[in-house]
Amino acid sequence: MNFNINRIKSIIKKEFAQIKRDRRTIAIIIMMPIMELLLFGYAASTSVDHIPAAVLNNDIGEESRDLLQKLVNSQYLDIEYYVKSMDELEKIIDSGQARAGFVIPPDFSDHIKTGKTAQIQLIVDGTDPTTAQTVLSGAGAVVQSMSVEITQQYRGAIVSSSLDLRSRVWYNPDMSSIYFNIPGLIGVILQTVTLMLTSFSIVRERERGTMEQLIVTPITKMELMIGKIIPYVIIGFVDIVLALALSVFWFRVPITGSITLLLLFSLMFLFGALGVGLIISTVSKSQLQAMQLSMFMIMPNILLSGYMFPREAMPEIINAISRVLPLTYFIKVLRGIILKGNGFAELYKEFIILAAFGIGFLTLATIKFKKKIE
């Protein structure tokens, strides 16, 4: 077989010319490795510190304040909430504002001074096993260290422990990774499927030559967008029902909250995810380009939403980026309803945010589409 080097050179030159004209592809070629390196470098960490905690301190002695200060100095925990009742402590942990709660009894300091064993209760949110294990080990180390100090100070020798840390893990007592992964995976699958499908919807019309037929009809831009979205909303609902059924009956992950509420939040999330897909479809010139942009969007969602890695382990700037991703809030909703049994009162902020994302992305998709056809 004979090869003509000049013809091969011409093909190579032509291919580079086509790539050069496609600025979106060039941007993906340059940005994708940079983005993945930065995201994996900063977000892919399981070393968790500065975990938000709440304290119910019924003791007025110096010893309890000393214990809390040692917990803060360990840098594993940040005591951000001081509550006055168990009900308030439970609400803060239920809402996810705090991942751990300490309850110090009123006789804590007196027991230490009289040589008795002083108890501390630790309540841990077990929905994220990595964070929960960090809290348990970090708090255990601090209590053990302080116990040794107290034993030397008040008894003159190291004997039995003078502090007793009683731990309780809520929502996921066995700290099973299945309970942590499955709710998040439902959100990831739902976003991936709907985003990929809708990102092809408009660009497919353009490639097939049917877009002109839609343009000349009396249908408005918003009507077209809604008509494009409704089938995928139905598909999304079918997917989430299948995923929930598989979670319950195959993986044995019980749904402790309201399924109706979960479906309502899923609807809000679907509109946002579908809106992003429509935006991608309106700015893409081909289905291949739409797929590339979809993958470009899916990767940050998987890494930064808290599905794979604890958000507490991420630097603040990366954490700030995660707050503009709808999946971040939807995963919190999924784990809150499925594992904690959260109601609307604990999740109303996420509802507002997801609704705002849906309205915003659909509006932007409509605006971008109008610019394309005029």
Results as ranks from 00 to 15, higher is better:
Gln97Cys: 00
Met211Asp: 11
His111Arg: 15
Thr256His: 13
Gly257Ser: 12
Ser45Tyr: 00
Ile28Val: 14
Leu304Gly: 13
Gly156Arg: 01
Ile92Asp: 04
Leu339Phe: 01
Ser45Gln: 11
Lys228Trp: 08
Lys84Met: 03
Thr46Ser: 05
Glu15Leu: 08
Val233Leu: 14
Lys13Trp: 06
Arg65Ala: 11
Val124Gly: 05
Thr46Arg: 12
Ser10Trp: 00
Ile318Met: 15
Asn2Pro: 08
Val55Glu: 08
Val83Gln: 10
Tyr154Arg: 02
Val143Leu: 10
Ile51Cys: 08
Leu334Thr: 02
Leu136Asn: 06
Thr151Trp: 00
Lys84Gln: 11
Ala243Asp: 05
Asp128Asn: 15
Ala17Lys: 10
Leu56Glu: 14
Pro254Lys: 13
Gly209Met: 07
Gln97Lys: 14
Val203Pro: 05
Met297Gly: 06
Gln287Asn: 14
Phe265Arg: 00
Met211Ala: 15
Leu244Val: 15
Met299Cys: 02
Gln287Thr: 14
Ile79Trp: 08
Ala98Val: 09
Ala320Lys: 10
Ile5Arg: 08
Gln213Thr: 09
Glu36Pro: 00
Val238His: 04
Asp128Tyr: 05
Val124Phe: 08
Glu80Ile: 05
Asp66Asn: 12
Glu205Lys: 14
Met291Cys: 04
Ser199Lys: 04
Glu90Arg: 14
Ser281Cys: 04
Leu224Trp: 07
Val169Thr: 14
Asn73His: 09
Pro105Thr: 05
Leu325Val: 03
Ser199Met: 04
Met297Thr: 11
Ser201Asp: 01
Phe344Gln: 01
Ile279Val: 13
Pro254Thr: 10
Ser161Gln: 13
Ile367Arg: 11
Asn4Pro: 00
Arg21His: 13
Leu261Lys: 04
Gln119Ser: 13
Phe271Asn: 06
Gly358Arg: 01
Gly115Pro: 02
Gly336Trp: 07
Gly140Ser: 05
Leu197Glu: 04
Ile353His: 12
Lys13Tyr: 06
Ser177His: 11
Ser10Arg: 07
Lys13Glu: 10
Asn342Tyr: 06
Asn319Glu: 13
Gln191His: 07
Leu89Met: 15
Val143Asp: 10
Val203Trp: 12
Ala44Asp: 10
Phe351Ala: 15
Lys285His: 01
Gln121Glu: 15
Ser305Tyr: 03
Tyr348Cys: 00
Thr192Cys: 04
Arg208Cys: 04
Ser95Glu: 11
Ala141Phe: 00
Glu15Phe: 09
Leu327Lys: 12
